[in-house]
Amino acid sequence: MTDQSFAHKSAEPSVFALQAKNLSKFYDDGNTRIDVLREVSLDIRRGELVAVIGASGSGKSTLLHALGLLDLPTSGTVCVAGQPSEGLSESARSRLRNRELGFVYQFHHLLPEFTALDNVAMPLIVRRDSRGDSRAAAAKFLDLVGLSARTTHYPGQLSGGERQRVALARALVTQPACVLADEPTGNLDRHTAHQMFKLLKQVNEESRTAFLIVTHDPELAALADRRLFMDAGRLVHAP
């Protein structure tokens, strides 16, 4: 973690997959102000795997939503793959998010009426890539996560671990600068979670895609290049 400004880094924007500067988020109902994020700054380099650890309510998921351009901070700036998001219209934020960020959640959020192949292809189809090209890319990333034999299966025909692998392939198919993962193994049994841990690290090393993973699991956090600790909305330790 560093205090350097975006302006200083602009000469080499491609080095950084994701940056945040002084992110704050609070809610005010007129009587009580709740500070969820407090002046959070961090830099994530391309190819880096970073884990964010903290108790429930410490602000981890709020941070992930702000970094993922899913929610606007009260103040502060997010920079994705060298491009500041401040001042962008909602449609421009959406395009930047779709192009440079991938998401994996505790629950897979796959579309049950589509095959694994079409679920993975969906982000490319949404941005109007051809269906043929989208499916070819989806097949490549399903192979990367070890599911080349399951492309025609529907989510209901897959195990929990396989569904999360499909979700990971979907997050990677746009070849984003960074994948944001919120408790990606939280809904898996211990054995399957361990397999998912190994896969995340393998994909990170092979694709050089940055990962920011929010987790309660110390085993998953131990795989990270860096571990960041959140307490009451602040990043308090970055070994």
Rank of each mutant, 00 (worst) to 15 (best):
M1W: 06
D3A: 09
D3V: 05
F6V: 06
A11N: 03
E12M: 09
Q19R: 15
L23C: 06
T32P: 09
V40A: 05
I44R: 03
G47F: 02
V52F: 10
G54N: 07
G59Q: 02
K60P: 14
L67A: 12
S89T: 15
L96Y: 12
R97V: 06
R99P: 08
R99L: 01
R99A: 04
E100K: 05
G102H: 07
F103C: 01
V104W: 07
H108R: 08
H109E: 05
E113I: 11
T115W: 14
D118V: 07
D118Y: 13
M122P: 02
V126E: 07
D133C: 06
S134V: 10
S134F: 05
A136D: 12
L142D: 08
G156L: 11
Q157H: 15
G160R: 13
G161K: 04
Q164A: 00
R170A: 02
A171W: 09
Q175R: 00
A177S: 09
V179F: 05
D189P: 11
A193K: 14
H194I: 07
Q195N: 12
L199A: 01
Q202W: 01
R208F: 02
A210G: 02
A210H: 04
F211C: 12
F211M: 03
I213C: 04
L220S: 00
A224F: 02
M230Y: 02
R234W: 05
V236Q: 06
A238Y: 15
P239D: 15
